[in-house]
Amino acid sequence: MIDIVRQKISKLLSDGSVKGVVALAMANGHVAPCLFQKEDDLEPLCLGDTKKPGDARYPLNKVLITIARQYPEDVFGVLVRGCDERGLYVLYRLNQLEPDKVMTIGIACPQELAKACECKKPYPDELVAGEKTEGITQQGVQDMEDMDLSKRFSFWKNQFSKCVKCYGCRDICPMCFCRECSLECEDIISKGELPVDIPVFHLTRAMHMTDRCIDCGLCDETCPSGIPLRLLYKKTSKIMNAEFGFTSGINKNEQSPLNLMGPAPEK
């Protein structure tokens, strides 16, 4: 798979259709995001496979936003998995990236990774390398809904109490791009105090994720306290789907019902 990706990147760079490609590189035994600009410099390119396939993932879209803000006229390529591509669709929708300034190099995730990520769509629409594998059915939200109210309350209270307010979930999130963050607004979130304001801190973030979260699971992987944040955002996605028939990042040109002026669209 990596050879096809390398060829594709090399071609894009040599014919000048992109200024650079944001992908992953293996350096000193570690996987890190890297901007490749020369076609003969692709040796360290990797797909984030260390011990298992794709176990080192990075929010490359987030790196791309930073670069695109500096060089708004240039076209950049980016390595995308299914989740990354969903993220790009949302970033186009929210005017953070221009679709005609981005070229994707889509790779499908192997079944093993799809399973590990509980991914519903482990392949991008525009596929360059890899075989499409089947999406995984998710169960977590239903299990939580089946518990009674007081059980849910104590579960989340315990989970939220573990938070050390590192802001890792926000910093890793490919959908978090705001220059000013509500989680740093002292009118909402008290500063320098632990435990966090329960449930304000986590629900504020969840509400901001309602029409954005693309279910990549990086927040879960990052959280040092092991709070099941993704479960919270899965629930918001489920509500959005049930109430408004909307799924974030599935259709390239879909607008969010929350941003549409006026009443909720007919189901």
């Binding site: 309350f153 104590s154 449930p199 629900l203 309602t210 918001t236 509500i239």
Partner: peptide, 10 residues
């Protein structure tokens, strides 16, 4: 959305 999220969190 928020009212259902509150319910989800107990």
């Amino acid at each position: 959305v928020l009212s259902q999220m509150l319910d989800f969190c107990g």
